[in-house]
């Protein structure tokens, strides 16, 4: 099939970029979206032009490196799919496809479609863990956990940290990411000792990083390639208020 691509090009470390138009023939239905971009890049290299930079790594939908806003939706319109698993058969011959980077103040563009998502790491650094050292913890089965809670924690833990939630949100809010992390630990007994501190610290870092505020539009849930539910945001809202009301000294 033939495609017209409108792709955001931005030089490294510059503030501005623009959409550029590319025509691509011979796109095969079996290609993944990234393989289609590979084909374009191969052509650009042979023409001596700078290939389009985009983040990707595992190409099997789990590392969370691939990003791209495709026709206005992070990872494209297909539900529960990362860009690397989106295949060209979802498009029609003659389509024009818009490809942009994730756009958030907290995710500055590095080059073309590559953005810096270390804001998520900094949120994690502030509290996304259980503080135990490597050593000799007690036997794994000495701590029974209800299957319901373990499964729910796993639903939250499925987050791949790609940033689609914040990038799809009309407000640029990272609540779904933070909610998934806080909920995972709040649901497990291992997370209890730091429950208050974690909720406060992670939300504070999230706010400081310059993400927007959640206004419950649920766009994040629809764009999430791992189908993480906004119910976890409700849980975070509860966790946070609980923490604010019960903190004994300023954390």
């Amino acid at each position: 099939m033939k495609l017209t691509l409108m792709i955001w090009r931005q030089e490294c470390c510059k503030k501005d970029g623009k959409m550029e138009k590319y025509f691509l023939d011979n796109v095969e239905e079996e290609m993944s979206f990234l393989e289609m971009l590979d084909v374009l890049n191969e052509r650009l290299i042979l023409e001596g032009k700078d290939p389009i930079a985009f983040d990707h790594d595992c190409r099997e939908g789990i590392c969370g490196a691939c990003s791209l806003v495709i026709n206005g939706v992070p990872h494209g319109h297909h539900k529960g799919t990362t860009t690397c698993q989106l295949h060209m058969r979802k498009f029609k011959d003659g389509d024009t496809i818009y490809v942009e980077p994730f756009r958030n103040k907290a995710f500055p563009v590095i080059k073309d479609l590559v953005v810096d998502r270390t804001a998520y790491d900094r949120i994690m650094n502030s509290g996304g863990f259980v503080s135990i050292n490597t050593g000799n913890p007690k036997d794994a089965n000495s701590l029974p956990i209800s299957k319901i809670n373990a499964d729910l924690a796993m639903d939250a833990a499925a987050c791949i940290g790609c940033g689609a939630c914040a990038s799809s949100c009309p407000n640029g809010s990272a609540m779904l990411f933070v909610a998934a992390k806080v909920s995972q630990f709040a649901l497990l007994p291992q997370g209890q000792p730091e429950r208050t501190k974690r909720a406060l610290a992670m939300v504070r870092t999230m706010d400081e990083e310059g993400f927007g505020n959640c206004t419950n539009m649920y766009e994040c849930e629809a764009a999430c390639p791992k189908n993480i539910s906004v119910r976890f945001i409700a849980r975070l809202n509860r966790e946070y208020i609980r923490a604010r009301l019960s903190e004994e000294k300023k954390i």
Binding site: P137, A140, K147, A150, M154, L188, Q190
Partner: peptide, 22 residues
């Protein structure tokens, strides 16, 4: 065996049975 203990202590949500054990 220590690895499993360590990971559970970190909050890794391994699959469990209804009795709550791994």
């Amino acid at each position: 065996n220590n690895i499993i203990d360590q990971c559970v202590a970190q909050g890794v949500p391994f699959a469990r049975e209804y009795g709550g054990l791994l």
